[in-house]
Write a protein that binds this DNA or RNA. Structure first.
Lengths: 215, 215
DNA sequence: AAATATACTGGACAGTGTCCACATGGAGGT
DNA sequence: ACCTCCATGTGGACACTGTCCAGTATATTT
């Protein structure tokens, strides 16, 4: 056996077929374990069974590849949030439903951060104007990126009369700050050593704080 | 002129004198602009006017040097918080003073993150059990690290009767999450493009949320 | 079928962390 | 005063990285 890390599928055609996609997939896999720094161009080409320079036909630099991986990670986060939202039962009063929506966004966010810390850290590894024109690469199935999903939940709170309209402006910053900060502290901060059960409990308290603090 | 990056002070003695300290200082300077990834061992030795391998007499690896830089960054954060606390006028009622203390911790935290984003990102770049035995390398002049300074402020809130004792447990996680998350979003997240004035305003709203959400 | 554009290969270079063997010279004992 | 020890710094090397430049193979267009 030559080596454990043999990943090249021994392509026989000169062209790869879909190298761009293969590099992105390899990059995502690298980011999954290891975070942003683990996204190394040469390793990605190795896994795609191609010479290092071939990557430059599809990405102008290692950083461009990392950006693509980041977008994919952001989209995965959006999907996780959407999944949490989809699991909501719709029976109750609008106010309760709106509150539950905001909670679901936060819960999905935190679950994803714990389940995929590498991707989560990659998604936020580098500056990004999330405000700007929404690009589909960073969005989930609904076409909304995580920031927009949060905004939609807050809008629902206003519509349901739970959140006074004058408090709506900038409310996503408050909610996002609390949840994002907690996620960071959990995945590689002082709260790293807590058990999943403890994290769940404190996470819910963070969401309580947001709910109380925002209205 | 040979080069702009000439930093070697042309030592003539064989021994450096205090290479360990010089490497740490160079590392901190590198982290100040550029964050954790900019802490590169060879550059640090270059600035200390020494051959790369000399570093290994004082730090077992590049990572050990980075850890030392992190501790220094954490200590600088503690000092910034202490400075904010020291600026508090003491005249008022204990309850007001306790509230102001918590706010000062948060404000110091956010000010430092904005003033020294490189050091801030470095301080939290890598897992660290902040809970464990407090080491002086990460502490400010009071001997307390940032986490402990926050805890002390919360204790004062309890003593002043503002925060019910049963809410005290874990309260630092809530406060820390909100403030840390906001800091992250500001220095390299979606809030990066906001003006300092806007950041100040939203930052105060984050602290409002903490105050309301915690009690 | 010829020409062109596209995708990949090959070889190189500077930069990094780190390993090994070696040189230097200050501290302490005789 | 000398001599030896050994912590500290040097020199050279290796594998790894991102990236540049020049070539080569194949798909597409003419």
């Amino acid at each position: 056996m030559p080596s454990v890390k043999t990943r090249a599928p021994k392509r026989n055609t000169y062209r790869h077929g879909d190298l761009r996609q293969a590099l992105l997939a390899a990059g995502v896999e690298l980011a999954r374990n290891g975070g942003p720094d683990a996204v190394v161009l040469r390793e990605a080409t190795r896994r795609a069974g191609v010479v290092p320079n071939a990557a430059y036909r599809h990405y102008a630099s290692r950083d461009q590849l990392l950006q693509a991986v980041r977008s994919a990670a952001m989209a995965a986060l959006a999907v996780a949030i959407e999944a949490e939202l989809a699991g909501l039962r719709r029976g109750r009063k609008p106010a309760d439903f709106a509150r539950a929506s905001l909670r679901a966004v936060g819960t999905g966010y935190l679950r994803f951060a714990q389940a995929e810390p590498g991707l989560f850290r990659t998604a936020f590894s580098v500056p990004d104007a999330l405000q700007g024109a929404p690009v589909p690469e960073k969005s989930g199935n609904s076409g909304l990126n995580p920031f927009q999903l949060l905004g939609a939940a807050l809008d629902r709170l206003v519509d349901a009369g739970v959140l006074p309209p004058q408090r709506r402006l900038g409310a996503e910053y408050l909610a996002w700050s609390a949840v994002h900060g907690f996620a960071m502290l959990v995945i590689d901060g002082p709260l790293r050593s807590l058990s999943p059960a403890q994290i769940e409990v404190i996470g819910q308290r963070v969401l309580d704080m947001v709910e109380k603090g925002i209205e």
